[in-house]
Design a protein around this nucleic acid. Structure first.
Lengths: 165, 165
DNA sequence: CCATATTACTAGGTAGACTAGTAATCAAAC
DNA sequence: GTTTGATTACTAGTCTACCTAGTAATATGG
């Protein structure tokens, strides 16, 4: 009985310890995004779009305004305005879609690449460094946890999530 | 030599796997926040403030507008407007500070508690459930990773972070 | 006691999201 | 082959939530 209680409270303590670490990481990550955004004097979504474009090109994918709208979870109208801004500032280019004449292909300019890539690479490098030293078993533990906590987030307020966009 | 290369590429693969899981968790978490915010028809910061107030009361801490401004990283002027909104909607109350007559104490109403607590508790419960089944050793691995990746986030663009607010 | 800091606030401006509606184009059904 | 409905990107106008600048009241250190 005393053992049972002890075990439970230990599990709770472990949980709190882990969640606290997760919370701290999240705060640090949010702060990092704020710094980046501020340093480039761009809005959060602008930075996200440039990152999205750089990554998409790297993977050989094409991107349309609708893709961006879906990725950011904003309306296509707002996406038009966002793209206007980024085109104006020379970070982004619109070209005609090869097969669908209603549509447009969006790509980042080399200027955007030059501006975003260093930070992106730096970030990636540091993140990778943070994973260094983990064994396969460790990786399994970490990934399993992240998958569980991801599922948990997905499950929160699922009924209310039925609002369509 | 071949062993060395193999090990390196394995480490890279492990890193990618972990970071991918982290990325997916983050997306899920962002989506959850968006759902919550939308369901309560409040802005991100409004929700964060209510959570902050509920937590602060739970821990016996008092909160002033300046605390909120610092917590959110916004100006005190914006905080005034934010508090006006939340006071108007019956989620928040201002009372005089007992010792500093310039200042104000901010507390959430029981209505806010009723609205926020269920989601908060649900979230917390699911997150705790996600940590269940981890051993002490697992917890060590997870926490160590989170601390490393947090440190990584803190280190990104530290020079540019020197902009003061 | 006086100078400076701090606190919450007001006023006015702006950026970036929204909704509603449009023209062009596509795709599927008849 | 034509029509009908869906999709795409866009424009126009609105709204929300932030910002900066400046203020009155109060606190605090020299």
């Amino acid at each position: 009985m005393s053992d049972r209680i002890r075990t439970d409270s230990d599990a709770a303590a472990r949980g709190r310890r882990i969640l606290e670490a997760l919370r701290l990481y999240q705060a640090a990550d949010a702060a990092m995004r704020r710094r980046t955004r501020q340093a480039m004097s761009m809005s959060e979504n602008d930075v996200l779009v440039l990152r999205f474009l750089v990554r998409a090109r790297g993977e050989g994918r094409t991107v349309t305004p609708t893709d961006i709208a879906r990725y950011l979870g904003i309306s296509t109208a707002s996406t038009t305005a966002l793209m206007d801004r980024l085109e104006q500032s020379g970070h982004l280019e619109r070209t005609r879609h090869p097969s669908d004449r209603r549509s447009v292909l969006v790509t980042n300019t080399s200027q955007a690449d030059d501006e975003v890539r260093p930070t992106l690479d730096d970030m990636n490098e540091r993140m990778m460094a943070a994973t260094a030293g983990t064994t396969d078993a460790d990786a399994d533990v970490i990934v399993a946890f992240l998958e569980r906590v991801q599922a948990a987030a997905d499950e929160v307020a699922p009924v209310l999530a039925e609002v369509d966009r």
